[in-house]
Design a protein around this nucleic acid. Structure first.
Length: 361
RNA sequence: CCCGCCGUAGCUCAGCGGUAGAGCGCCCGGCUGUAGUGUGGGGGCGCAGUUACCGGGUGGUCGGGGGUUCGAAUCCCCCCGGCGGGACCA
């Protein structure tokens, strides 16, 4: 268990499969000092759990297992600000609960997690005091720079003012809970950096930011042929709920999962922006070694058995593994992984699922 | 966190190894014109006062701290602050 982990093992467990830890040195010294390290992840209950979230969920599990005292913030008010689920707070709250359940099913020791609803934070006037302090210590331009995409539309007058409060709340959440670590997908970077910027000025702990990768959309990124237009290629590539066919949901049937994977973008021998390889890397091979069997007819080379992602990638780059065989294998493992979770979600949150599903239409 | 630019007078900035500057503002004075006012009108005088002009004056820890140098606003290092950019969005 965690108390038996030595420092180097902790550091390894926490930093694996992340895009970055800002900064590793700060994290190490926190552990060296030896006091109870507190971390959190805030998630916006915006709909059904999808496979992209699994990446931060697994990282969350790592942090819990590494002995970090983890908070899980149900960012219900934040979802409201971002007009998620039609602003239906009841539905948002239920959606939040189903995410907590999924975490439990993937093996997060939920008894050691402190689940907090944003409702609790905003009910405390101290929270709003912190928020005003944060607001006073950052210029309008600085806050605007920390905005999500949604918020950036303010410039065009397409968004309401509450979007500007959003990053202030994210920062206030961290300070209010007294956290050492802020975990999130790479898309949370701007808010985390704002928190780091103003923390010392206000006498709060400067949070260490841990960012997990974002999965490429199953549709991939077209326009790869434009040389040097990386930005253009990268745009529009995150796996997102707004386009159901681009993501695998925890509620998808075995057939739906297989079909989405088989139809996914998966260029021969190419690693970059290859959603199937990413799923293999960040989800199937999250923990290594792992037994991974690729069934193949003898005329295509026969079955393959590997244990690490590195082996898989090498085979693929070498052209020894055809996209179709890769997809079949990945689909099998994803289906096996999701099936039990899905069954539980339907059992506990069947009503919510149908509500949200109808909401999508 | 990374990259780039910036921080010099109240404001906008120039100067980028050799005496800290300009424009604007501000203060004092002058003058011309103008509206108001004392007192019914005019003149004079006074008060008050807008704009433009003229003259004079006021302007500074050159963001902070170290270093290099005979000499630093200027070059180097560290820090603080600001703006922009940074895989989703654009």
């Amino acid at each position: 268990m965690w108390w038996s982990l030595d420092l180097n093992t902790k550091m390894e467990v926490i930093s694996r499969n992340t895009v970055e830890v800002v900064t590793l040195e700060e994290l190490r010294s926190k552990f060296e000092v030896g006091y109870k390290v507190k971390g959190y992840l805030g998630f916006e209950p915006s709909g059904l759990f999808h496979i992209g979230w699994l990446i931060w969920a697994l990282k969350y599990r790592d942090l819990v297992n590494a002995g970090v005292e983890m908070y899980l913030l149900e960012a219900t008010w934040h979802a409201w600000i971002n007009d998620k689920l039609g602003g239906d707070m009841e539905l948002i709250r239920t959606a939040a609960k189903h995410v907590v359940s999924v975490l439990k099913y993937i093996g997060v020791d939920i008894d050691r997690v402190r689940v907090v609803d944003a409702e609790e934070l905003v009910s405390d006037r101290e929270y709003w005091g912190i928020l005003i302090k944060v607001a006073k210590s950052a210029s309008l331009a600085r806050v605007r720079r920390a905005l999500t995409i949604m918020g950036r539309k303010i410039e065009e007058g397409e968004a309401d003012f509450s979007k500007l409060i959003y990053p202030l709340m994210q920062v206030s959440d961290i300070f209010y809970l007294g956290l050492d670590i802020a975990l999130g997908g790479l898309d949370q970077r701007k808010a985390h950096m704002l928190a780091r910027d103003v923390a010392e000025k206000l006498g709060f702990k400067k949070p260490i930011a841990i960012h997990t990768p974002l999965l490429t959309s199953l549709q991939g990124t077209s326009r790869m042929d434009h040389k040097g237009e990386l930005d253009e290629v990268l745009s529009d590539s995150k796996m997102s709920k707004s386009r159901p066919e681009s993501a695998i949901f925890i509620t998808d049937s075995d057939e739906a999962i297989r079909s989405k994977i088989m139809n996914a973008y998966c260029p021969l021998r190419q690693v970059d922006f290859n959603p199937i390889l990413e799923i293999a890397k960040y989800i199937i091979f999250y923990e290594e070694p792992r037994d991974f069997i690729i069934e193949r007819k003898a005329k295509y080379g026969g079955p393959l058995e590997i244990t690490t992602y590195k082996e898989l990638e090498e085979l693929y780059v070498a052209g020894s593994l055809h996209p179709l065989d890769l997809k079949s294998a990945v689909a099998k493992y994803v289906v096996d992984m999701i099936r039990p979770i899905r069954d539980n979600v339907f059992r506990e949150y069947g009503d919510m699922v149908s509500k949200i599903t109808s909401h999508h239409q």
